[in-house]
């Protein structure tokens, strides 16, 4: 077995981990706003957030390619700041993955926050807890199951990403060649042995993650009652 075949796997895991962490930070305030707001533009934001669910990845990838290209303001600014392009780079993949997996982070969190209602927040406020204190000591612990679901779905969804990566990142070994692209390439070049190996690894890995979540979720439910 030649070990370099696993490069795409590590790259994929790194991409999924970075994307999930970024989405946790960005998705939390967005989900909180969506859960609390009575603003008139809330449906607009909700629709935008859900867009990656229905758009073909190629459409999303196409627009991202234009948005991130060195000739666009964003792409140019990034190039000036880092010396690297956003397209066909790991950073570009992270941006694309964040957009692509956004609904998988935001929707479970929004549901968890909405499910809390105002009760625990008012109780915490009456116990002298300020807004940040309330959020981190009451909202987050009470929304753990929502966080667990959101994290796993975002992570898993990013691992399974194909179309957007192909459009934005192409197929550069060690840089943008993630596992789904590698498998596609193996199949195209009729290298079924490596395609089998990587597919099996991905299959088992995905199953184990989901199993872990469901087991944890069950325990968690029993403990909280």
């Amino acid at each position: 077995m030649n070990l370099p075949a696993f490069d795409p796997l590590w790259l994929t895991l790194r991409l999924a981990a970075v994307t999930t962490l970024l989405l946790l930070v960005l998705g939390t305030p967005l989900a909180w706003w969506l859960a609390r707001s009575r603003s008139r533009i809330k449906p607009v934001v909700e629709a935008l957030t859900a867009l990656p669910l229905v758009l073909p990845p190629t459409v999303l990838g196409f627009y991202l390619l234009i948005l991130l290209s060195p000739t666009s303001p964003l792409g140019a600014a990034w190039r000036n700041a880092t010396g690297d392009t956003l397209t066909f780079s790991f950073a570009g993949l992270v941006v694309a993955s964040c957009l692509y997996s956004l609904p998988f982070m935001v929707q479970p969190l929004q549901a968890a926050f909405e499910g809390l209602g105002r009760g625990p927040l008012e109780a915490a406020a009456s116990l002298r807890a300020g807004p940040w204190d309330r959020f981190f000591r009451v909202v987050v612990p009470l929304s753990l199951r929502g966080y667990l679901t959101a994290t796993v779905l975002s992570f898993a969804h990013t691992i399974g990403e194909f179309g957007v990566v192909l459009m934005v990142g192409g197929n550069i070994p060690g840089r943008t060649k993630v596992i789904s692209i590698a498998i596609y390439e193996h199949v195209e070049t009729i290298n079924y042995a490596d395609a089998h190996l990587l597919s099996a690894v991905l299959l088992v890995f995905s199953f184990l993650i989901l199993l872990f979540v469901y087991v944890l979720n069950r325990r968690f439910r029993v403990r909280v009652g």
Binding site: G119, E122, A123, V138, P141, V224
Partner: peptide, 11 residues
């Protein structure tokens, strides 16, 4: 404040 439904923290 004591609420009608107690509102103890379940966690």
């Amino acid at each position: 404040m004591v609420f009608q439904d107690a509102r103890l923290f379940g966690h």
